[in-house]
């Protein structure tokens, strides 16, 4: 479910890749990534899948209900720095599209600032495709290469079938000057990283967003610790070379 959240006072000053801690008194608090592009008025958007107690309670809220929001927290995709002036490759798996959508919309709003832009999106089945209106809009653009695939096809799906790595060799980007932003399940990273390596993309050009249990958001509770790093402070977006040799990171 897509939530449009409007702060009662001021506005949330965030960048793509960051997250907020959303809370309902009596139910609890959970980290949710922001899926809208910054600078779009007073509100921001979050895509929430119903998987636990808090997300179930969020789904049951009526329109206009109040929530508690802390944030924004965490690091950002390098849309405002490393990626500028270079090719951009977005690799999204399943609900990993949510935080990446923020980065994609940001880049497309400033399209002239970037080189070639390629978006790869993979889901398990056609029914699980998210933001279908955005997907159609990206597919229709001439200045964006948009490729998507599903693991299992179901009628009336006529598109690509197979895992997302099958799309990577088709990306029209220059491996030497591309910056990759990826978000998806851990298993996706394992194979995507191998494919990117085969393409000749250096670890320093790859940015991944890791899902962890970011309970406090301020580097205190210990739940999102990856060795000496905190996903809530040093992540959730990590440049891959910084975590490549780290146990339990991916």
């Amino acid at each position: 479910m897509l939530f449009e959240v409007r702060p009662e006072v001021g506005r949330l000053d965030y960048m793509p890749g960051q997250f907020v801690e959303v809370s309902l008194p009596g139910v609890g608090e959970a980290p949710i990534s922001i899926c809208s592009a910054p600078g779009r008025g007073e509100s921001f958007q979050m895509l929430v899948r119903k998987t636990g107690r808090l997300t179930a309670a969020l789904h049951a809220l009526p329109e206009g209900a109040r929530l508690g929001v802390r944030g924004p927290y965490g690091t950002r995709f390098p849309v405002g720095d490393d990626m500028k002036g270079r090719d951009a490759l977005f690799v999204a798996g399943g609900i990993g599209l949510a935080p990446l959508r923020s980065a994609i919309l940001y880049v497309l709003e400033r399209r002239a600032d970037y080189g070639r832009v390629t978006i790869l999106y993979g889901t398990k089945s056609p029914a699980e495709r998210l933001f279908t209106r955005d997907l159609a809009a990206w597919a229709a653009r001439n200045d964006v290469q948009f490729l998507e695939t599903v693991d299992r096809a179901e009628p009336p799906w006529t598109g690509n079938v197979g895992v997302i790595t099958t799309l990577i060799p088709r990306a029209r980007v220059d491996p030497a000057r591309v910056v990759v932003a990826a978000c998806g399940p851990p298993i996706m990273y394992k194979f995507v990283l191998v494919s990117l390596h085969a393409l000749g993309v250096a670890h320093t050009q790859i940015f991944v967003s890791l899902e962890r249990r970011m309970k406090c958001g301020v580097g205190k509770c210990g739940h999102c610790q990856i060795n000496g790093l905190y996903a809530c402070l040093d992540g959730p977006v990590f440049r891959y070379d910084r975590i490549a040799d780290m146990q339990e990171a991916i």
């Binding site: 008194p25 009596g26 608090e29 998987t51 851990p186 899902e211 962890r212 509770c221 210990g222 999102c224």
Partner: peptide, 25 residues
């Protein structure tokens, strides 16, 4: 009600559990 914090342990199995019920560990 009240929001409370309690001691937790990184050695407990559910400590790093995330929404899709997979653990980093």
């Amino acid at each position: 009600g009240e929001r409370c914090r309690r001691w937790d342990a990184c050695l407990l199995r559910d400590f790093a559990l995330v929404a899709d019920t997979t653990s980093a560990r």
